[in-house]
Structure formats: C-alpha cells, structure tokens
Design a protein around this nucleic acid. Structure first.
Length: 446
RNA sequence: GUGGCCGUAGCUCAGAUGGUUAGAGCGCCAGGUUGUGGCCCUGGAGGUCGGGGGUUCAAGUCCCCUCGGUCACCCCA
C-alpha cells in the first residue's frame, strides 16, 4: 500500500516547527489588536465572481491559478487565492461602522508550480482598514507591518513603495506608457514585444535586461499622478519619514491585483536567497468596495506570507531552537497510579507535565524525560510510595552530580517551584497563554 | 504552463566500469547498570533501492514512461 502524502505544494507544519507559527500568530494578533484591528474570520470558499470582480478577471491569479469547484448545488466556488477580497466582501455584506479595521490569518490557495517560498497552499496574516482616504491610515498600516517584522527580530527587510494613481490619472498614464513602449517594442524582451499592448505596466516589472534598458527612460507613474494622488503620496512618504520608517520609492513597483490604487508597497526580505523574496505586500484599493457592490469606500491593507516570513527569520537566525515538551516529567515505577495522580495535579496547577506510558523501565523513562527537555523529574518507586514521598531530580544539574531530593507527597508543588529556580526554568510556566507558547518568550527579540 | 537537477532505512548519505544475503552515521528499541537520564560499549528492529515497463544470464546501477521533490522562468506572500 502506497503511503498517503500531502498534495503537491502543500505542507504539514509539525512540532517543533509549529512553535514558530504559534509565536508569529501570537505576536501578530497582539500587534493588530493594539493597533485597533479586530479579528475577521471569513469562509475559505467564496463565489468565484468575488475574485473575478475583485482581483481582476484577467490577472494571472484568477485566470490560471485559482482552485475552483462546483458544489452539489451547482454553485461555482473558489478557494481563496488571497486574503483581501473575502474580508472586503464581508464588509460589503455587513456594513460595520467606519472606519472598520480587521485583521486575519488564513491559508491562501494558488495553483502554481511549487518552489522555495511558493506553495499551492500558503498562509498569510494581514489587515484591512476601510472607510477613509486619509494618508495617515496608509502610514499606520505600513507601520504596523514594519513594527511586526522588527518585533520578530527581522531586520534585513526593505520597504519599497509606489503610487498607482487613481481612476482619474492612471488611464492617461497607461496610454502614455503604451505609446512609449510601442516606439521601443523591438527592444523589449521576447515575451513583452507583443504583450505590452495588453498590460503595459507589467513591462516595468520585467527583470530582463532588455526590458530594463527599454524602460529606463519610460514615463513614470509618479510623474503622472493627478494633484490629489500626488499630494496623497507625498503625505504618506513624509508620514513614514516622520515615523522613522525607512523606505525607497520604486516607480517600477507594480502589483498583480487590479484593485490597487494609489499607495502600493512591498517588503523585500534581503537575507533571502530565493527568487521569492517578497515577505509582505499591500496597498490601497479605493475602488474595491464599490466593485463588490458596496458604497464607494476607500480602503488599504497588507498581507504577510508566513512561510516566507519564517524563511527570512531563518536566514537571519531569529529563533533559537530549544524545544521543550514539558517542564516536569513523572517517572512511575508503581504501575501508573502515581503518574496519573501527579500529572493530573500538576497540570491542574498549570505546570506543563509529561510522563511515560507502557510501564517502561526506569532507565527508559528517565531517557524519555531527558529527551522531553523537562528540567525536573519526579520519581515514584516502591520505596517512595511506601514512605508517602516523591523523589525530585534536577535534570539540568551537571552530568554525574545527580542532584536529587526526596519530599513528602503533599509538598511536591512547592518543591518543584523551589528547584525550578536552581534549574533555571522560572517563567517557563505561570505566564499562561499564547505568549509563553513553546517557551519562546523573548527569543529573537534583542 | 516551460526548462534544469534529484529520488537508496524515520533523517543525512555511501554503494567505479551492471555481478553473492544493499551499507554507514544519527535517531529508535533492548541490554551492560534486577531503582536513576545525558557520555561510553554491545545487540536489535527498520528497506518491494519512489512506482511501472524494458534491455540482460544478472539492474539500486543502463533505457523508456510515470509520480514525487527541488531550483529557475512566469507570477506572487
């Protein structure tokens, strides 16, 4: 029988790797809440038209990368390829009071050829803020992402931004660019010599030497912005300066979704070797709500790819791998009833506690205790049981020293707390909740 | 969707030009120490050599197909 495996381009995230995910998720949710964003959970499946109308019928993501399905009722559905459209759809459907700020964490599905940093199912955390064109909001949203990277200890990240203009100024610019490209069509790369007609903006983003040179002198969008867009972009940039957020204006930055207007930005992981080095990106989408059937409402948001974020964190060595499954390990040589009662008692008191099963030998149980990373072993054999006591052993004491005491059964908890001090595990528990998950507290944050 | 590289134990990998029962390190299990983890020693379990077909007296090794992984293009997080 062939062993089952996860579909191509999808991955399992298991302990201890998953610790980093818990950490990232906990940090992001905290940062988002502090910034006034509330969690939004929306369905993984949506009407395909949501993405066709939102992202754009002819975008690559919609035209050739969507996971589409027909349900038993004949509805055409799609697995979300990105996070913004569903949240904006929820806004249109429920019309919460403005401004509305939501954060999310979600898988996203795109049928692409997998490679480093690119998967068919990947995961994003992100935010959407709807209801005002105020550039202060742009700054705030960008600052949230930027601060989040910093909190994780990720520093080799470059912020690049651009403005895509609006319905007033962009069409004229696109026309200008198209005719410029037409004049140099023969110097473009093979792929763009004809396709520039349909999507001239894409050529700006082309990495080939030919297109680079050809577009060096091309008209730049930021020079063709209308007065409003220009003023808006200036205020975003000065706002970022004011906050001390380094950024580079990149007139070539073109993002793949049709809904973007005005501010667009991307965070590039400089420590990443892979060609997939965008660790986050987003922008304003002042026409999206309307396109989805809601009232004219401006909005802005970003998404951060967790897999790429983690790749970047690895490249910078943000996390120390130091997994512990428990702080206390119970070794039972009396048939299991001591383990049952001690484990129950300690866990109820909030102490991460593990034990062995199957009545294995003492050596095997202590070995398991060692591997679990526990700092303390509680040992109950016939002698202890007869004396109504528990042996408490410091698993972190120097090799051979075998530091071990015997305490009365009822004094186990205080004895653990006392030894915890010398074993150097204070604080591993007691700060219950996501922040202490996996003992990652403080790691990676200078 | 296009192209390059790679699939041998749970993991990392050896296995010249085809030739006996396919190996190592790590990990796992047990014993050495009948009540004490880490270091050490001994032993053990674990493989349809990704799958299918072909060439051959003989295929992990050569050929074809296929699946999977990986990298790049494309696109994006």
């Amino acid at each position: 029988m062939e062993a089952m495996r996860a579909p191509s381009g999808t991955h399992d995230v298991l302990w201890p790797d998953s610790r980093r995910w818990e950490h990232v998720l906990a940090r992001f949710s905290a940062a988002a809440r502090i910034a006034g964003f509330g969690l939004a959970i929306t369905p993984l499946i949506e009407d395909v038209r949501l993405f066709q109308r939102g992202i754009g019928q002819f975008s690559d993501v919609v035209s050739k990368e969507m996971y589409e399905l027909t349900d038993r009722g004949g509805r055409r559905l799609a697995l979300r390829p990105e996070g913004t459209a569903p949240v904006v759809r929820a806004f249109v459907q429920h019309r919460p009071a403005l401004p509305w700020k939501a954060w999310y964490a979600t898988p996203a599905f795109r049928y692409e050829r997998p490679q480093a940093g690119r998967y068919r199912q990947h995961h994003q955390v992100g935010v959407e803020a709807l209801g005002t064109p105020d550039p202060d909001l742009d700054v705030e949203v960008i600052a949230l992402a930027s601060g989040f990277y910093g909190e994780l200890g990720l520093h080799e990240v470059e912020l690049i931004c651009n403005s895509m203009g609006c319905a007033t100024c962009r069409p004229a610019y696109v026309e200008a660019l198209r005719s410029y490209l037409a004049s140099r069509a023969d110097t473009l790369c093979p792929e763009h010599t004809t396709s520039f007609q349909a999507s001239p903006l894409r050529v700006l983003d082309c990495k080939t030497e030919a297109c680079r040179m050809a577009t060096d002198a091309a008209p730049r969008l930021i020079d063709h912005l209308c007065q409003d867009c220009s003023a808006h972009f200036e205020r975003v940039c000065s706002g970022l300066d004011e906050q001390g957020i380094a950024h580079r204006i990149e007139p070539r930055l073109v993002r793949g979704f049709d809904y973007y207007t005005r501010t667009t930005f991307e965070f590039v992981g400089l420590a990443l070797d892979s060609a997939q080095n965008a660790v986050g990106g987003g922008g304003r989408y002042d026409g999206l709500v309307e396109a989805l059937g809601g009232p004219p409402t401006p909005g802005i948001g970003f998404g951060i790819g967790i897999e790429r974020l983690l790749l970047a964190c690895d490249a910078e060595g943000c996390f120390q791998q130091d997994a512990t499954q428990a702080d206390v390990f119970v070794v039972d040589l009396v048939g299991g009833h001591a383990a049952r009662s001690l484990v129950g008692e300690l866990r109820a008191a909030g102490v991460p506690t593990a034990r062995a099963y199957d009545q294995r030998s003492m050596k095997a149980q202590l070995k398991a205790a060692d591997r679990s990373g526990a700092a303390i072993a509680l040992i109950v054999g016939p002698q202890e049981e007869a004396a109504g006591a528990v042996a408490i052993r410091n698993l972190r004491s120097p090799r051979g020293s075998g530091e071990q005491d015997r305490v009365a059964r009822e004094n186990v908890l205080p004895a653990i707390l006392e030894m915890a001090g010398t074993a150097g595990i204070v604080g591993l528990w007691g700060t219950a909740g996501v922040e202490s998950v996996g003992g990652l507290d403080g790691e990676g944050v200078p």
